[in-house]
Structures are given as structure tokens and as C-alpha cells.
Amino acid sequence: MSVKFSFTINGKSVEGESEDRTLLVQYIREHLGLTGTHVGCDTTQCGCCTVHINGIPMKSCTMLAVQADGCEVTTIEGLAQDGELHPMQAAFRENHALQCGFCTPGMVMSAIGIVDRHKGEKLDEKTVRHELEGNICRCTGYHNIVKAILAASEVMNEAQ
């Protein structure tokens, strides 16, 4: 069985076809070759696969590709503009918020969601730690990730 769908990914439109059961993350990685989005678990718990669907963070391992039909998808590859890192990416680099980097794409996509949900507010550490519940990192102990998100939120709020 196969299904057809169309969506935009990082601003480019895609006319896709896949098996009905193909997961969005599989389609992104294996059909579109965008391998920045990772798969770290099979229980919807690690958050490595987080992408934005119409600007909202979702776990692409727990969506079918066809469920993105008509949506705007953004992956980690779509964040940098004209060779310039997104403020969240820049803050992760600045604050050494990664070690192996496996969780990082999902962390960055979720982190942008945290800042978006608290637009104009001064984020605190407790909120950030709480809202990172859906992302698991095995290396960093989260400390620098939290620092990076707090730093990026200031830059992102100023830019608005």
C-alpha cells in the first residue's frame, strides 16, 4: 500500500509517496536524506526526532509521513539562515551544550519551542528543566543545555 502527500520542508515543497506505515522521521532521513533528525528510542521518550510542524515541536518518530500532509515541516537543517546559525544553535555552541551531539538536534528544536511558549517572559531554570522533560541526553547532565537555552531566550526575545 502507498499514500501520496505534499508538504514543505525547510521552505522547499515535497510531493511525496510512501508506504502508509512510513514514519515521518523515516521519510525525512531515508527519502529526503536529511539525517540531522535522529532516532534514539522506540518508545516516544527521547526527543531526538523532534521537528517543528507548523512551528510546533513534535516527535517525528510518532507521526506517519502522511500526517504531515499540507504542513510546514522544519528540521534542524532548516534553522540556519544564509550561513548564520539560529540563536539557539549559536548558544549551544557558545555554552558547550553538547558532547556526543546525538540528542542535540532534538534538544535545539524543543528548546526553540520552550522560548516560543514563553514569548516575552524571562525564562527561569526551573521552567527550562521542566519543559525539557521530553528530551533525553546521556552525556551532558543537562547543565550546559539549560544554560544555553536561557542565554538564547534573551537573544531571541530581544530580536522580536
Binding site: M58, M63, G134, N135
Partner: peptide
């Protein structure tokens, strides 16, 4: 419930 991404779907 769950985490932010779970709550978004």
C-alpha cells in the same frame, strides 16, 4: 501529561 511534544499531539 507526558512532555511538551506529547501534549502538542
Amino acid at each position: 501529561i507526558g512532555d511538551p511534544m506529547v501534549r502538542n499531539r
